[in-house]
């Protein structure tokens, strides 16, 4: 009677279409709050801020949110498993410095150097992520502490690599990528978008993604279900490192320099984007679509406030307020969801 039933998969194919559709609608509704906030903000700025809706300004906003978006994508994985990665800004500097050295190697053809630099950056990022994940999972140390350590290690490493010197004069072919556009959309933004879509696919459509969510909800249940939570947790940090490596390349292409002090405070922006996007800091709940909207919200806010001429200090206060507001709204959403049962 309770025999294994691998064969029954196909039999109810017809009836199976309804649920995913409904689930998808629910998912979309979950992001509706932040999406609405973004729309409201855009409407307000369109009305009050001159040039806000200009094509060039839209391009600018997309360019400006790119790096944060890339880092926040990796950060989402880490936060979903209930961790946090404070080291991303520093690791990005380390990635950039190593990649910069490779890029300035004149003994190989430029395309080779660019490819090698990209690879180097990503590998350095993934190694740092691996160390973060390994230490925090193996010794069961809070990732907050481990990544705080990595923050210092990577920053020191970045300074050490070139003895605190800034690298510049990269090949033109490389620098051109930073300003290239496709139908008015910055190429670097397209890279970030592709990364978000890939991440979204992984989180929602793959076994790995399912387990990432499950770990954030109930690690013990996942472990007792026979999955290696250790590997999964390490993988989340490695993904974070991977996105940081990509972010470093984007940074270098966009600003044509690699400075050992770059990326200071970027981790907080990335975390803010993830949290504003509705991902719970306790893990297990949230989505990359939310993170995408969160990064957009931060970018639109920064851009719009400058355009309407709000001063630096007030601007900082408003940004902080929005983060707190987002968390309050999220708490309400959770409460409403709880009441729904």
């Amino acid at each position: 009677m309770v025999d294994k039933n691998r064969g029954m998969a196909g039999q109810s194919k017809l009836t199976s279409f309804k649920m995913p559709a409904k689930a998808a609608v629910q998912k979309v509704l979950q992001e509706a709050g932040i999406g609405m906030a973004l729309l409201v903000l855009i409407t307000i700025f369109s009305a009050t801020a001159p040039h806000f809706m200009d094509e060039s300004n839209v391009t600018n906003i997309l360019t400006q949110i790119t790096i944060n978006l890339v880092m926040a994508t990796g950060m989402t994985f880490v936060i979903l498993i209930g961790g946090i990665d404070l080291s991303v800004g520093s690791v990005m500097a380390l990635c950039a410095m190593v990649a910069g050295l490779v890029l300035k190697n004149e003994s190989v053809p430029v395309p080779v150097a660019i490819a090698a630099a990209g690879l180097a950056s990503v590998i350095v990022g993934m190694i740092c992520g691996f160390v973060n994940g390994f230490v925090s999972s193996f010794w069961n140390v809070p990732s907050f502490i481990v990544t705080l350590g990595m923050l210092n290690i990577a920053r020191g490493g970045a300074l050490e690599v070139t003895d605190a010197r800034t690298l510049f004069e990269f090949p033109n072919m490389f620098n051109d990528f930073g300003t290239a556009t496709l139908f008015g959309v910055p190429a670097i933004f397209l890279v970030a978008l592709a990364l978000v879509l890939l991440g979204w696919f992984v989180l929602t459509r793959t076994v790995f993604g399912r387990l990432i969510y499950s770990i954030g909800n109930n690690e013990e249940a996942v472990r007792l279900s026979g999955h290696s939570t250790f590997i999964l947790k390490v993988a989340a940090f490695v993904i974070s490192g991977l996105t940081v490596g990509i972010g470093a390349i984007i940074y270098m292409a966009r600003l044509t320099i690699a400075s050992p002090i770059l990326g200071t405070g970027f981790e907080l922006n990335a975390i803010a984007a993830v949290i504003i996007g509705g991902t719970s800091l306790n893990g297990g709940r949230g989505s990359l679509i939310g993170t995408f909207l969160g990064a957009c919200l931060i970018g639109v806010l920064a851009d719009g406030l400058i355009l309407i001429g709000v001063g630096d200090f007030v601007r900082q206060m408003i940004t902080g307020g929005v983060i707190i507001l987002a968390v309050i709204l999220d708490s309400y959403r959770a409460r409403i969801a709880d009441r729904g049962r």
Binding site: R6, A9, K13, S16, F17, M19, P20, A23, R205, T206, V207, F208, G209, R210, L211, Y213, S214, N217, N218, E220, A221, V222, L224, S225, G226, H227, G284, R285
Partner: peptide, 30 residues
């Protein structure tokens, strides 16, 4: 320890053997 409470019945059932409902790491939702 037993259930991922915040997740649907569907996810809880298949959590033990996701290989059965996936191909090459991709979930086959149907």
């Amino acid at each position: 320890e037993g259930l991922v409470l915040a997740m649907p019945v569907r996810v809880n059932i298949t959590l033990t053997d996701l290989a059965q409902v996936s191909r090459a790491g991709l979930l086959r939702v149907q």
